[in-house]
Amino acid sequence: MKDIGLITSVSIRNNLRSNIIVAVLIAVVLICAISLVLAFCLLAIAPAMKTEIPDRHTLEMFLSVTIYGACLIGLGINMNVFAQTMMREKSRGNITALLATPLKASHIWTGKSLAVFLPGLVLGEVLGLISLLAVNYIYFVPRIGFLINPWMAISSFVAVPIIYLGLSLLVHIIGLAGKPATANVIVQVFLPVFAALMINLGIRHVLDAASWLFTVANLALSVIIVVIAILLRPRLTRERIVLSC
């Protein structure tokens, strides 16, 4: 655990040292999150609030999708930006150098995965929380009170981070034991495809975004990703990593 903590903390510090990358990350995340929240507020929540007696469940569903989207953006864009550090570290010999030390390959894998995941977790949770509070205090509190249900909270604040933790483990094992470019493609494709799919399912009532079913679907996906990453774990040998560098 000590080794994993050391790799994680050093990798986070190293990743966040580039001021330009951090500035770009924050700017892109803010622009995307604000755009998404504004779009839902103006196109869905505001019209729904104009009715004499707003439908509480519809509002919960819209709020759920808004928070869910904000969390996804924080975690997803962060991963898109930092997952590429694996490619750089492999080409510059950082990974090979670490493997020549007494560190275990699995510790390097876990540490590097956490280093990419944790800043995104903070970003995603903060954006989700801000969206929840902003929408509630601007639209709901004055008329119907604070709106939240446990399923929307679990979907956004628990399931989405677990999905991205699994994804981080998966792309890092692919990047370490195989081609980092393949891992990058998975990361780049995952956010738009997954976000579009889940948000569409949510707002089209296929999977009610404020229901337990939506939460279960997300948790199931997170379990599948984590299981795939664990199944690939035997491929993580020093030889395979070094030969793929």
Partner: peptide, 14 residues
């Protein structure tokens, strides 16, 4: 064992 490999594997940002 100590080692110095090529490429050196040092962290540029540190």
């Amino acid at each position: 064992i100590g080692f110095a490999l090529d490429p050196d594997g040092l962290y540029d940002n540190m």
